[in-house]
Design a protein around this nucleic acid. Sequence first.
RNA 1: UGAGUUGGCCGAACAGUCGCUGGAGUAAGCUUUUAGCUCGCUCUGGAGGAAAGUCCGGGCUCCUUAGGGCAAAGUGCCAGGUAACGCCUGGGCGGCGUGAGCCGACGGAAAGUGCAGCAGAAAGUAUACCGCCUAAGCAAACUUCGGUUUGCCGGUAAGGUUGAAAUGGUGCGGUAAGAGCGCACCGCGCGCCUGGUAACAGUGCGUGGCGAUGGAAAACCCCACUUGGAGCAAGACCAAAUAGGGACCCUAUGGCGUGGCCCGCGCUGGGUCCGGGUAGGUUGCUAGAGGUGCAAGGUGACUUGCAUCCCAGAGGAAUGACUGUUCUCGACAGAACCCGGCUUACAGGCCAACUCACUUU
RNA 2: CGGGGCGUAGCGCAGCCUGGUAGCGCACCAGUAUGGGGUACUGGGGGUCGCAGGUUCAAAUCCUGCCGUCCCGA
Length: 132
Amino acid sequence: MALSLNGFPRTHRLLASNEFKAVFDGAQWKAQSKEILILGIHRGETQGNPRLGLVVGKKSAKKAVQRNSIKRVVRESFRTHKQALNGLDLIVLTRPGAADLPKQELRTMVDTLWGKLKPNRRKPSNPKPKRS
RNA sequence: UGAGUUGGCCGAACAGUCGCUGGAGUAAGCUUUUAGCUCGCUCUGGAGGAAAGUCCGGGCUCCUUAGGGCAAAGUGCCAGGUAACGCCUGGGCGGCGUGAGCCGACGGAAAGUGCAGCAGAAAGUAUACCGCCUAAGCAAACUUCGGUUUGCCGGUAAGGUUGAAAUGGUGCGGUAAGAGCGCACCGCGCGCCUGGUAACAGUGCGUGGCGAUGGAAAACCCCACUUGGAGCAAGACCAAAUAGGGACCCUAUGGCGUGGCCCGCGCUGGGUCCGGGUAGGUUGCUAGAGGUGCAAGGUGACUUGCAUCCCAGAGGAAUGACUGUUCUCGACAGAACCCGGCUUACAGGCCAACUCACUUU
RNA sequence: CGGGGCGUAGCGCAGCCUGGUAGCGCACCAGUAUGGGGUACUGGGGGUCGCAGGUUCAAAUCCUGCCGUCCCGA
């Protein structure tokens, strides 16, 4: 099969709520700026697809148009950088103020954040459930 | 030419590359093989005028038909349009504007209850502070003994003062002074007539002196009309499950049920706790009070007929990014069951009709 | 999708139903008591009543439309 390198099909997304929960509970990989926070978890298998989940709340962007455009920018950036992120499940969270950034600035910020993504050694590799 | 009013329309365009997504066709792989999943290729569709706020009205769906009474909420000049409306159109009345036009919660205060601070004599069955008038009565002062003046008593509401608001206006007569007390005109009420479907109107006729009948109902209220309740997380289907149990409590003028209460109606035990177990998929989901064009009817909203078109349907949720060219340099803003309105936001641009002012002819 | 509450001085709240004067506590400023501070007492300043219209003679209050914020239910 001739899977295109820059595509963003359904298999590259986080879909179910328990998948989101797994990333939140055992987030070893982390990168952040003032407006953006990226959490990640390594699924073990090195050749697996990277998967992306987005959390853009009303608190960070009030208007639906703003939330949509933020998601588009992040997806676009993920799509072009995903070859370096194999095997990772990632969640991108936005913080208040993300909607006030110009699109170009947001794009370059997310682009550089992928490179900054590093595993946190203090956390144990096997996630232990904090919440009961 | 400038200023303005009303109605309607548009909401950057084109090309290429990559990416997302619905549909149709087609090749391949996998599986639990009449089916489904994954992925590729070709063709094709892919946000708005407000998609928004969720303020109204419907469709649709379910509930044990929704019947009556009370309550509650909403609407409020008249007629029409519409599936319906609190919307729209036309008309009436009132107000604003030189005008085109615009604005109006615009039923009832002679059913009842309540309200109007301060000021003012008086604020709702009116009243009399300053005034004006009067010398009949009482009292006092003065007196040329004729009277004069003042107060009380009495008359009056023209003038003044207050206030948002003071109970017809102007003129003439009238009077002690005054007063619809009388008259004329205007205004107002009532009845009739005429026109209009009606709201309502009238140099129409008659009648009433007008303290009748002030304001406020976005105070309660009265009258008329409308409203059964919930909402696509409605609901339907498939698979699984709601099993079998234990303890305690409440009781059949009981309990349960989609309506705030009662009657009526339907069902027959109900509730709490312990323990056990399931919460996956499909559908509803877009062909509709649909769009466009033409014709006819109507002042118009709109209706009818014919032709033609198919124009988003996701499910963490699709329209974006980059490059190039052009211009007026791009605003408000993203469908989530679907329509009709209203309201609010909005860079800029276009068209039509009309009004006013100036200039020219 | 449906329903409800709140917005008044720097902060937390009354007043709104039943319309005419915006008040309470803390904080702030000044004075007195003390050598000074804390504290107490006395006096004072400070509010577009979320915004915009409307009703009324008069609106924080009644009505309508917006804005912000918080909370429920499915």
